[in-house]
Amino acid sequence: MKNDLIVEEMERELMRPGHMACPGCGEASTMRLVLKVLGEKTIVVILPSCVGVISATFPNATFAVPCFHSAFEIAAPTASGIANALKLQGREDVTALAFAGDGGTFDIGLQSLSGAADRNDNFIYVCLDNEAYMNTGIQSSSSTPQNAWTMTTPGGRRGRKKKFMQIIAAHRMPYAATASIGHPLDLMEKVRKAKEIKGMKFIHTLTPCSTGWRMPEDLSVKAAQLAVETKLFPLYEVIDGSEYRITHQPQGLPVSEYLKIQGRFRHFTKDDVDRLQKEVDEDWERLLAQSAMKGCV
């Protein structure tokens, strides 16, 4: 049964070819997988971000579902407005979905995201985290890793990457998860779950950006996999803000494996790498402690 579903989803293509993404774009691959699961009965909210350019330059229309190019800081209240209108119209079989970048989520859209989470409006929010403001040309966001190069942190970013899932968990949404194109079936399974749950759902995806990460374009999936397997970006779910469940047991590769393929970390010293490794190890221990399963499924 489940396998039939997967075949059906795999064959469904709601992202049309010929869009404007750079080769190897992690955002494009993520959106494609998400839409495969959600299907035709979906209304998509997109924002100023690479997605706005990838998918919405007239007369092109990349998504084969209705789409509204909203404003930068309002992914959540836009999706809320659509979801509530659908409820008023008795059309709750249609899913309201928002795609927002890390800038639109961690920074400028944080307040409005928090408001929607508080109301527990019925939609899915997918954060496409490429760890910088890429559309405007690789500027640092609060999702950019510490000491990473961007155009506005040419000597490396001083601040540390915001632990966003902790903020999300604190909102006690019915469903939140991390996911990545390195593990597509895990990602699709999470979207499938989110679709079935009423209320606000948040999926944090790491979307490698070969352009901004200074990396060959055929390494995006590899980078996504390495982020997971080094425990830098573990795959897990948070139910109601309290029940943690790790969905994939990482191999525990050294973080240097992930760092060394990306030009934005080229200037990292051994100290930088060691500091990051220590932080990743500590975070993993904390996640294990939080996880009811204390391990993988």
């Binding site: 309002i74 209240p77 836009t78 809320s80 407005g81 659509i82 109301r119």
Partner: peptide, 25 residues
């Protein structure tokens, strides 16, 4: 009888009105 959205700002209130209006209410 409708839905009352208690938003976290006026900016979001207008954002929600725009989206709901486009959806047809």
């Amino acid at each position: 009888t409708g839905i009352m959205m208690r938003t976290e700002s006026e900016h979001s209130a207008m954002a929600a009105c725009i989206a709901a209006s486009l959806t047809g209410v």
